[in-house]
Protein backbone atom coordinates (compact mmCIF):
# COMPACT_ATOMS: atom_id res chain seq x y z
CA UNK A 1 0.00 0.00 0.00
CA UNK A 2 1.13 3.56 -0.67
CA UNK A 3 -0.17 6.60 1.16
CA UNK A 4 0.56 10.05 -0.18
CA UNK A 5 0.11 13.05 2.08
CA UNK A 6 0.40 16.79 1.82
CA UNK A 7 0.66 18.91 4.97
CA UNK A 8 0.27 22.63 4.45
CA UNK A 9 -0.04 25.79 6.49
CA UNK A 10 1.73 29.01 7.38
CA UNK A 11 5.50 28.80 7.79
CA UNK A 12 6.14 28.30 11.48
CA UNK A 13 2.96 26.28 12.12
CA UNK A 14 4.98 23.10 12.10
CA UNK A 15 3.67 21.49 8.92
CA UNK A 16 7.14 20.32 7.93
CA UNK A 17 7.44 18.62 11.31
CA UNK A 18 4.17 16.74 10.87
CA UNK A 19 5.49 15.26 7.65
CA UNK A 20 8.85 14.53 9.20
CA UNK A 21 7.46 12.59 12.15
CA UNK A 22 5.19 10.58 9.89
CA UNK A 23 8.07 9.73 7.58
CA UNK A 24 10.31 8.83 10.49
CA UNK A 25 7.67 6.61 12.06
CA UNK A 26 7.01 4.94 8.72
CA UNK A 27 10.72 4.30 8.35
CA UNK A 28 10.90 2.78 11.82
CA UNK A 29 8.08 0.44 10.87
CA UNK A 30 10.16 -0.78 7.95
CA UNK A 31 8.34 1.09 5.23
CA UNK A 32 9.71 3.19 2.41
CA UNK A 33 9.26 6.89 3.02
CA UNK A 34 10.05 10.24 1.45
CA UNK A 35 9.68 13.81 2.65
CA UNK A 36 9.83 16.68 0.20
CA UNK A 37 9.36 20.24 1.47
CA UNK A 38 8.52 23.35 -0.46
CA UNK A 39 11.44 25.71 -0.19
CA UNK A 40 12.24 29.21 -1.29
CA UNK A 41 11.66 32.81 -0.37
CA UNK A 42 7.93 32.28 0.11
CA UNK A 43 8.84 30.35 3.26
CA UNK A 44 9.62 33.65 4.94
CA UNK A 45 6.33 34.16 6.73
CA UNK A 46 4.47 32.70 3.76
CA UNK A 47 2.98 29.29 3.22
CA UNK A 48 4.84 26.04 3.58
CA UNK A 49 3.94 22.56 2.49
CA UNK A 50 5.49 19.15 2.48
CA UNK A 51 4.80 16.02 0.46
CA UNK A 52 5.21 12.82 2.43
CA UNK A 53 4.92 9.32 1.03
CA UNK A 54 4.73 6.18 3.16
CA UNK A 55 4.71 2.96 1.18
CA UNK A 56 5.28 -0.80 1.30
CA UNK A 57 6.86 -0.54 -2.14
CA UNK A 58 9.83 1.43 -3.39
CA UNK A 59 8.80 5.05 -3.85
CA UNK A 60 9.10 6.22 -7.41
CA UNK A 61 8.25 9.90 -7.41
CA UNK A 62 8.28 11.74 -4.06
CA UNK A 63 6.14 14.47 -5.57
CA UNK A 64 2.54 14.23 -4.46
CA UNK A 65 0.06 15.66 -6.96
CA UNK A 66 -3.06 13.83 -5.80
CA UNK A 67 -2.84 13.26 -2.05
CA UNK A 68 -4.70 10.53 -0.22
CA UNK A 69 -4.57 12.76 2.84
CA UNK A 70 -4.36 16.52 3.11
CA UNK A 71 -3.62 18.13 6.46
CA UNK A 72 -4.50 21.82 6.13
CA UNK A 73 -3.69 24.18 8.96
CA UNK A 74 -5.04 27.29 7.24
CA UNK A 75 -7.60 28.24 4.61
CA UNK A 76 -5.11 29.01 1.80
CA UNK A 77 -3.92 25.42 2.09
CA UNK A 78 -7.45 24.08 1.53
CA UNK A 79 -7.91 26.49 -1.35
CA UNK A 80 -4.69 25.34 -2.94
CA UNK A 81 -4.73 21.58 -2.39
CA UNK A 82 -8.22 20.28 -1.46
CA UNK A 83 -9.37 19.98 -5.07
CA UNK A 84 -6.56 17.54 -5.80
CA UNK A 85 -7.35 15.07 -3.00
CA UNK A 86 -8.13 11.66 -4.50
CA UNK A 87 -11.81 10.70 -4.42
CA UNK A 88 -12.34 8.76 -1.22
CA UNK A 89 -9.38 10.54 0.36
CA UNK A 90 -9.21 12.40 3.63
CA UNK A 91 -9.06 16.09 4.50
CA UNK A 92 -8.02 16.99 8.01
CA UNK A 93 -8.23 20.66 8.77
CA UNK A 94 -7.78 23.17 11.50
CA UNK A 95 -11.19 24.83 11.80
CA UNK A 96 -9.67 27.67 13.85
CA UNK A 97 -7.99 29.02 10.74
CA UNK A 98 -10.16 27.67 7.93
CA UNK A 99 -13.34 29.75 8.06
CA UNK A 100 -14.61 28.56 4.69
CA UNK A 101 -13.79 24.88 5.09
CA UNK A 102 -14.20 22.64 2.04
CA UNK A 103 -17.29 21.76 0.04
CA UNK A 104 -16.24 18.42 -1.43
CA UNK A 105 -18.55 15.49 -0.77
CA UNK A 106 -16.52 12.64 -2.21
CA UNK A 107 -13.87 12.71 0.53
CA UNK A 108 -14.07 12.30 4.28
CA UNK A 109 -13.50 15.49 6.14
CA UNK A 110 -12.32 15.78 9.72
CA UNK A 111 -12.30 19.25 11.16
CA UNK A 112 -11.11 20.21 14.60
CA UNK A 113 -10.27 23.48 16.32
CA UNK A 114 -6.65 22.43 16.59
CA UNK A 115 -5.27 25.64 18.04
CA UNK A 116 -7.96 25.60 20.74
CA UNK A 117 -7.39 21.97 21.60
CA UNK A 118 -3.62 22.37 21.67
CA UNK A 119 -3.96 25.31 24.03
CA UNK A 120 -6.33 23.25 26.17
CA UNK A 121 -3.75 20.49 26.38
CA UNK A 122 -1.30 23.08 27.57
CA UNK A 123 0.94 24.22 24.71
CA UNK A 124 0.24 25.47 21.18
CA UNK A 125 3.35 23.65 20.05
CA UNK A 126 1.64 20.28 20.32
CA UNK A 127 -0.68 21.13 17.44
CA UNK A 128 1.40 19.04 15.07
CA UNK A 129 1.17 16.00 17.37
CA UNK A 130 -2.59 16.47 17.48
CA UNK A 131 -2.66 16.33 13.69
CA UNK A 132 -0.54 13.19 13.70
CA UNK A 133 -2.92 11.66 16.24
CA UNK A 134 -5.86 12.33 13.98
CA UNK A 135 -4.07 10.57 11.12
CA UNK A 136 -3.31 7.59 13.36
CA UNK A 137 -6.91 7.46 14.55
CA UNK A 138 -8.34 7.62 11.05
CA UNK A 139 -5.87 5.46 9.12
CA UNK A 140 -3.30 2.78 9.76
CA UNK A 141 -0.28 4.23 8.01
CA UNK A 142 1.68 4.39 11.27
CA UNK A 143 1.14 3.15 14.82
CA UNK A 144 0.84 5.13 18.03
CA UNK A 145 3.54 3.02 19.71
CA UNK A 146 6.11 4.02 17.10
CA UNK A 147 5.47 7.68 17.79
CA UNK A 148 5.61 7.11 21.54
CA UNK A 149 8.96 5.30 21.26
CA UNK A 150 10.40 7.94 19.01
CA UNK A 151 9.34 10.90 21.12
CA UNK A 152 10.40 9.16 24.32
CA UNK A 153 13.84 8.42 22.92
CA UNK A 154 14.79 12.06 22.55
CA UNK A 155 12.49 13.90 24.96
CA UNK A 156 12.27 11.76 28.06
CA UNK A 157 15.46 13.00 29.69
CA UNK A 158 15.48 16.48 28.18
CA UNK A 159 11.90 17.56 28.66
CA UNK A 160 9.61 15.00 30.30
CA UNK A 161 6.73 17.48 30.70
CA UNK A 162 6.69 18.33 27.00
CA UNK A 163 6.82 14.61 26.22
CA UNK A 164 3.67 14.07 28.29
CA UNK A 165 1.90 16.93 26.53
CA UNK A 166 2.89 15.56 23.14
CA UNK A 167 1.65 12.07 23.92
CA UNK A 168 -1.54 13.52 25.31
CA UNK A 169 -2.02 15.46 22.09
CA UNK A 170 -1.53 12.36 19.96
CA UNK A 171 -4.04 10.41 22.06
CA UNK A 172 -6.53 13.21 21.83
CA UNK A 173 -6.01 13.29 18.07
CA UNK A 174 -6.60 9.55 17.86
CA UNK A 175 -9.96 10.01 19.58
CA UNK A 176 -10.91 12.71 17.11
CA UNK A 177 -9.76 10.59 14.19
CA UNK A 178 -11.80 7.59 15.34
CA UNK A 179 -15.06 9.51 15.56
Amino acid sequence: MTTELICAGFGGQGVLTIGKFLAKAGMKEGKNVSWLPSYGPEMRGGTANVSTVVSDEAIASPIVSFPDILVALNQPSIDKFAASIRAGGILIYNSDMCPHGCKREDISIIKAPMVEIAKEIGNQMVLNMLAIGIIIGKTDIIRYETMEDDLTSFMKSKNPELLELNLKAIKRGIEIGKQ
Binding site: K20, A23, N32, V33, S34, W35, L36, P37, P62, I63
Partner: peptide, 8 residues
Protein backbone atom coordinates in the same frame (compact mmCIF):
# COMPACT_ATOMS: atom_id res chain seq x y z
CA UNK B 1 14.80 18.08 -5.04
CA UNK B 2 17.45 15.53 -4.09
CA UNK B 3 19.20 18.11 -1.94
CA UNK B 4 16.10 19.17 -0.05
CA UNK B 5 14.18 15.91 0.29
CA UNK B 6 14.56 13.46 3.15
CA UNK B 7 14.69 9.72 2.67
CA UNK B 8 16.03 6.92 4.83
Amino acid sequence: MLGQMMEP
